[in-house]
Design a protein around this nucleic acid. Structure first.
Lengths: 248, 248
DNA sequence: AACTTTATCGCACAAACACGCATAAAAACG
DNA sequence: CGTTTTTATGCGTGTTTGTGCGATAAAGTT
């Protein structure tokens, strides 16, 4: 087995399970521990995973966890500010959940008059502070992990909405693979959200760039705006700039 | 399980519940106390939590929330504790919103397994901290004043629910006039909530006793439990004791 | 004051790791 | 084609890290 194949195998395992043990890989791939360690080190150098004692963890796995520790807050604020530019009076906007979206909401102009649909209770509460914004919370099963509503009922309701713009956070984005996610239900949800908005803006802190997870939400072409905290000419964005995509 | 995963798990517990017991973690993670203590110490070194005798506390706990600014909080806590007694494993419960309900939710037993429907985003978020509670958030227009969803869509959805118990806060209660309210929409909402539950418990701080407002929600007979912070034999309750009503 | 629960410390041991070296296959080169 | 260089892998050795155990101390409880 070639080294490259091993690397691919390891990355598949990581994206599938979010974690991998050195000892398991030794067994599965039938090579020495040293080889695995070297492989992991090389993947770390390529910024593809996180190495810990005993194995390695997915990079995206992290960020999905510690959101309540106001993780990477500065970046999220920067993204939020950029996203505000997309919002005009009279718009009908659909938003997902997550701390990035929350920072965005906090930075909306006071007088803004608009209609917001959201699947996130926390976003709804925050939006309610604006007098001229009408807030519609889409109800359904409530996800303990991602703190948004999900499930069939949500999708049914989404199908009845026609929004001007959909703002969503992201688990992972990749120039070829597009938007991807780990959980089936969230995947379905995002698809439904995309389907009911004329345009979609993806809010994405830079460390979630160039990552592809198990389930495909949509190709990169389905996205209208990509908003990161980086400067427009930052080299990490070059591969996205080639696509038909407005980068903010 | 990798150490890093344990750390993440602990942080999630902390961020969820604001506190965590060493002994619980030992059970949940199936490692020795020493390991947990070392984990906690390391997280302290990373400035992620406070360590106390018996467990650890969230750093953001103190600063983050309104808690102390809640009006008549002690009374509401007392009411919350009493209300918890009504909840049994396997129940389907419907709740309204408000700070009293919120105090109730915070005092539910950890292991409780039940289904909760709610019209309050904040209540939903709080309920999501319990692993064995299924939370369904009822969606619709979001009221800026009362921080609950309301309107036709909510009422339609309520009509499809059959709950064992409905817990609601109250604007006013009167021995003759029953439950009353000021706003038309909230009035309609409460009627719909009552209609879909076998029994109803009203959570009510004593100062809202003996008040009648403009719109009638229901006669006193429609209520199964009245929960206040007062002792059972307090004289303010005498006129309610005469009715067919369980007083807690 | 007696007792129970938690913490702390030193130690032991196994698993995971890093580093240098040896080997062999693959690639590069004249 | 033969020689050199590079790359990939495994092995041995010593080191570090993670974990549990027992004894003792400190903090809470009654």
């Amino acid at each position: 087995m070639l080294k490259k194949e091993r690397h691919d195998f390891i990355m598949r395992q990581i994206n599938l399970h979010n974690r991998v043990l050195t000892s398991d890989l030794v067994q599965l791939l039938n090579v020495s521990e040293d080889t695995i360690r070297r492989d992991l080190q090389e993947l770390v150098d390529e910024n593809l995973l996180y190495k810990v004692h005993g194995g390695a963890l997915s990079k995206s796995y992290h960020s999905s966890f510690d959101d309540s520790t106001v993780y990477a807050r500065d970046s999220k604020i920067a993204i939020g500010k950029k996203a505000v530019q997309l919002i005009k009076d009279g718009m009908v906007v659909l938003t997902g959940g997550g701390t990035t979206i929350l920072e965005f909401v906090k930075r909306l102009p006071q007088g803004l008059s608009a209609t917001f649909f959201t699947i996130s209770p926390l976003v709804a509460v925050e939006l309610a502070k604006y007098n001229n914004i009408e807030v519609i919370l889409i109800g359904g099963l409530f996800s303990k992990n991602s703190q948004v509503t999900y499930g069939g009922q949500v999708i049914t309701q989404l199908s009845e909405i026609k929004a001007d713009l959909c703002l969503m956070g992201t688990s992972a984005i990749h120039p070829e693979e597009g938007l991807t996610d780990t959980y089936w239900e969230i995947n379905q949800l995002k698809k439904a959200m995309l389907a009911c908005a004329k345009k979609t803006a993806v809010l994405c802190i830079s460390e979630k760039l160039d990552i592809a997870l198990r389930l495909r939400v949509c190709p990169i072409e389905s996205i209208s705006y990509l908003i990161t905290e980086l400067d427009l000419d930052h080299e990490s964005l070059s591969r996205y700039r080639e696509k038909e995509l407005n980068i903010l």
